[in-house]
Simulated scan of single mutants.
Amino acid sequence: MKNYPPEFKRDAVALYESRPGATIAGVGADLGISSETLRNWIRAARQERGESGRPGRRPQAGDSGGEASLEAVEAENAALRRRVRELEEGPVFRRGDALVNRFQFVAKHAATFGVKRLCGIVGIARSSFYHWLSAAPARAERQRRDEALAEQIRAIHAEHDGTYGSPRITAELRERGRLVNRKRVERIMRAFAIVGVHLRKKIRTTLSEASGRRVPDLLQRDFTADVPNRRYVGDITYLPIADGTHLYLATVIDLCSRKLAGWSITDHMRTDLVAEALRAAARDRGRLDGAIFHSDHGAQYSSKQFAELCSELGVVQSMGAVGSSADNAAAESFNATLKRETLQGRTSWPTARHARLEVFRWASRYNTRRRHSKLGQRAPQSYETAFRSTSSTLAPAA
């Protein structure tokens, strides 16, 4: 794209700033943009926040006494960044304690490398680090109390064959004279991996609605296309968050190149979710007139609002049979791949922000760098580039 929407720029800057070991070149490659473009966005965002400093600045030769010193500093910085990345991949970072671990990392190595330098590498403010350091005695006391309560919770949990969750354990504690807040019990159970038996809640993203419109199945389970920008599939999937809430992702996928041409994330499943995904595809492609968009019979896709948008963009709607996931298997497969490769065995993301940035990064890498088996192990963007070299247009069939 020559013109990127503000949301893309904002997410690109947030992705770079949320990954201490990342480089502008690396993040730019993930997103399919040049280093200079990303550097300009970061600079503009920092100026808007009133911050100074050039994005990606490294110590200069004059800062440390010559080129040899600079090389040594860069080598040490690289080693420190590798250690930060190792921490990010560990179980504690995955629980959402990334900021705490950065503080701990600075505290552990401050005597060797200095607080100022380490804070710059891991991306935290020195004032925040010193505030965290001064609160260490209070944290230690709170941890001691949490551990004592965790032992009581474990005892109650074992007494009831591991079936009690936080509501029943809270009631049991109160009956035994321990006045405790349920939220604190939930937090401690989560921190100490004490889990009660519960049925997994099924999240329905396909909510049918009798709209009276008859939309034919134009694909008949043939999820292929001879040229890009002719046939698309789309679906809604949920993104689980650790606090029990969900975000929802809507997709628009090209069946020729498997490119994720458009997508949208919100905290609701209203028609605006799927409408914005289709608009994003239209912005990416420039035009969609004559293209087929295939979906399930969800209320969002069956709505009058979505039908009007399709008419406005020149898109021809197609829908599979009611209740048949096989009629939209390509979109279902994409959703499964996304969750498998982003969650990597976890059941949820720590926060909604984590989910947004992880999906943003994965979706961008999916288009620009991830090799696809159906494309001869090429990325969708590479496949389309090769296609353009042998074809004069990327326009849909009339």
Rank of each mutant, 00 (worst) to 15 (best):
S392V: 08
N77Y: 01
S69E: 15
S264T: 04
I24K: 12
R279S: 01
D254H: 07
E76S: 13
P20H: 07
R176P: 03
Y232W: 13
S324M: 13
D222E: 15
Q220G: 10
D243C: 01
L394R: 03
E172W: 01
R58P: 01
A75L: 06
K183Q: 09
L87T: 10
G123V: 05
G65S: 07
N367D: 15
T37E: 06
D63Y: 00
S311M: 04
V106A: 10
E209G: 12
E308N: 01
R174E: 03
N328S: 10
F306D: 00
A336R: 02
L249C: 01
T23C: 10
A277P: 03
S324W: 15
R365A: 06
Q377D: 12
R204G: 13
Y4Q: 15
S264A: 05
Y301D: 00
L218W: 14
P5N: 03
P55M: 12
D217V: 14
T342W: 04
E172C: 07
Q381C: 08
I169G: 01
R95H: 01
K9I: 15
S324T: 14
G290C: 04
A191T: 04
L99G: 08
G56H: 05
G96S: 09
S127E: 04
L338H: 09
P137F: 00
R231T: 03
A225Q: 09
D11M: 13
R144Q: 14
A352D: 13
L199S: 05
P228Q: 09
S324R: 15
A14T: 11
N229R: 00
V233E: 02
I169Q: 00
W132V: 02
I241P: 01
R346L: 08
L247C: 04
Q305G: 07
A277N: 02
